[in-house]
Design a protein around this nucleic acid. Structure first.
Lengths: 146, 146
DNA sequence: GGCATATAGTTAGTTATGCAACTAATTTCA
DNA sequence: TGAAATTAGTTGCATAACTAACTATATGCC
C-alpha cells in the first residue's frame, strides 16, 4: 500500500474523534464542576437558541448537525429540565417552535464563559494562524462530504 | 443543509465534532455500501488489533481513547459477530487478551481501503501542508487536555 | 377538489458513551 | 507475611446516536 495513503489513514484516526472528544469531555467536566447538570449536546442546542430563539426542530437539526430523532429526544430532555418549551407554530401545524425558558436564558453567560475557558485550555501553545488553518481544513472537509 | 457551516471566529463546531462526525458518517455509509455490517467504532478496535494482535482490553482503551465499559461492550459485540475472541492471559489472570479471528483478518484490506477512500473524499482540495498543521494542532490539543 | 408527494415530528430497536459502583487478581510495603 | 492500595474488567443507569417505520400536516399538480 502506498505510504501516503497510510498517512491519510492515520489522519482519519486523528480527525475521527480524539481531539474533539477530549475537548468535549473537558467541557463536560467544567460544566459539572460549575454545578451545571446539562450535557454538552443539550448545551449545543441551547447555544443555537441563544443566537436565535424559537427555532423549529428541523432548523435545530440543520444547525446542530443532528438528525430528527436525536433532536426530538434532546428537546424532550431539555423540556423535562424546564430549559425549553415546545410551542405550536401558528402558520404550520406540523411545526414545533422550540423556545427558551427564563432558566435557560440565565445559563447563557456562564456556559459560554466555560466554553471559552475550555477552548483556551485546549489551545495553549497553538498558533493563531494554525487555528485558522484548522478551521479552513474543517470547512473544506465538511463541504466535501455534505 | 444551508446552515451546516462553521462560523468564522468560533471553534464550537470543533467541540461539536462536525467535521469528524461528517467523516465518520461517510465511512459508515461506505462500509454499508460494501456490504459490511460493522460499525466504525468496532472497526477502530479491529484497526488497532491489525497493527498488533492480542492486546488487553486496557491497552485497547488507551489506543482507542475509550473508557473500560465502552471497550467491554465493543468487545462483547465483536465477539458476538465472531470477529474477536477473549483469551485469558497466562501471566496475569486479571487480563483478557483480545485476539482477531480469521474472519476479522479478512476484513483488514477492504476496510482500510474504504477508510483511505473516505479520507480521499474528505480531503479533496486540502493542501498537504495544511494536513500536517491539523495533525500538529490536534496533537497539541490532546496533550493540553489529557 | 382530490390524489400524490413532500415535510415536520415521533417511536422503536440497536449500538455506543460516561459515570459510579462493583468483583477479582496483583502489587506494595510496613 | 498480610493488609492496603492498585489494576483489569464487568454491570447498571442515563443520555445520545443512526436507521427505519410511522402519523400528521402541507403543497403541487391534474
Amino acid at each position: 500500500m502506498p505510504n501516503n495513503q497510510f498517512k491519510r489513514g492515520e489522519l482519519y484516526s486523528v480527525i475521527n474523534g480524539m481531539a474533539s472528544t477530549a475537548v468535549a469531555r473537558r467541557l463536560q467536566k467544567n460544566f459539572r464542576q460549575a454545578g451545571l447538570e446539562i450535557t454538552i449536546e443539550q448545551w449545543s442546542v441551547l447555544y443555537h437558541l441563544w443566537k436565535e430563539d424559537c427555532l423549529s426542530q428541523q432548523e435545530l437539526c440543520n444547525r446542530t448537525f443532528r438528525d430528527k430523532p436525536s433532536i426530538t429526544r434532546l428537546i424532550d430532555n431539555l423540556e423535562k429540565q424546564k430549559l425549553v418549551k415546545r410551542t405550536a407554530s401558528k402558520t404550520d401545524r406540523r411545526i414545533n417552535l422550540v423556545c427558551l425558558t427564563d432558566a435557560a436564558k440565565e445559563l447563557q453567560q456562564l456556559t459560554i464563559d466555560l466554553a471559552n475557558q475550555t477552548m483556551n485550555e485546549a489551545l495553549v501553545g497553538v498558533l493563531r494562524e494554525d487555528i485558522e488553518t484548522v478551521k479552513k481544513v474543517f470547512q473544506q472537509v465538511f463541504d466535501n462530504l455534505i
